[in-house]
């Protein structure tokens, strides 16, 4: 921040000034505790990412928690079915704030190749998603990239976008009114 010279009593070794948000963000982004919502083959790539070869712990996110109350990053990896969506919503709500969501792979993001009756066509219709990973399944490098994007969001380098359900987004409403006219 460069304020040190304005407070002579602090201007010595071992002091620097900053913002509380930046310090907390720095701590948070380097110790993300992911909740693995793995329902399909994307979860295998998620496991590979955690293994020593790709080693997600280099980015401080190796503490996989199977309890939503102890985790702050949900990785939705796999197909979400009609019967699973209420479970996913409930688990998302059980996670304490602040929390972030990665939608990993084509199925979680859009339904993928499964344009069928039990397949949710994108979990972002019902829970907020921060980062989407394309791929079927995505490579571990993509998941690492998504984690780095989450870190940038936490750090304030990237703005977190507003969550709007697709059919309730302003563009969708405009389209609808245009159709009526």
């Amino acid at each position: 921040m460069g304020l040190e010279h304005m407070i002579p009593s602090l201007a010595g070794d071992g002091f620097f000034t900053t913002q509380v948000n930046r310090v907390i963000g720095w701590a948070r982004k380097n110790s993300l505790w992911p909740y693995p919502f793995g329902t399909a083959c994307c979860a295998i790539e998620m496991m590979a990412t955690l293994n020593s070869r790709y080693d997600l712990s280099r980015f401080g996110a190796e503490v996989i928690r199977f309890s939503p109350r102890q985790s702050d990053l949900m990785i939705v990896s796999g197909r979400i079915s009609l019967k699973m969506m209420p479970v996913l919503t409930e688990i998302y709500q059980q996670m304490g704030e602040p929390k972030w969501v990665i939608s990993m792979g084509a199925c979680a993001s859009t339904g993928g190749v499964f344009n069928t009756y039990p397949q949710i066509q994108g979990v972002d219709q019902f829970i907020p998603v921060d980062v989407y990973i394309p791929g079927c399944p995505p490579r571990p490098e993509s998941l690492i990239d998504a984690l780095v994007k989450i870190q940038q969001i936490i750090d304030g380098q990237v703005e977190r976008h507003e969550f709007t359900r697709p059919d309730k987004a302003p563009e969708a409403k405009e389209l609808e009114s245009a159709k009526k006219n």
């Binding site: 209420p86 919503t89 344009n115 009756y117 949710i120 066509q121 219709q125 829970i127 907020p128």
Partner: peptide, 16 residues
């Protein structure tokens, strides 16, 4: 029964 269902997959309550 249509393969894409009758809208069941789109009718969940949003978490918020």
């Amino acid at each position: 029964y249509p393969i894409t269902g009758k809208g069941e997959r789109d009718n969940f309550v949003r978490s918020e």
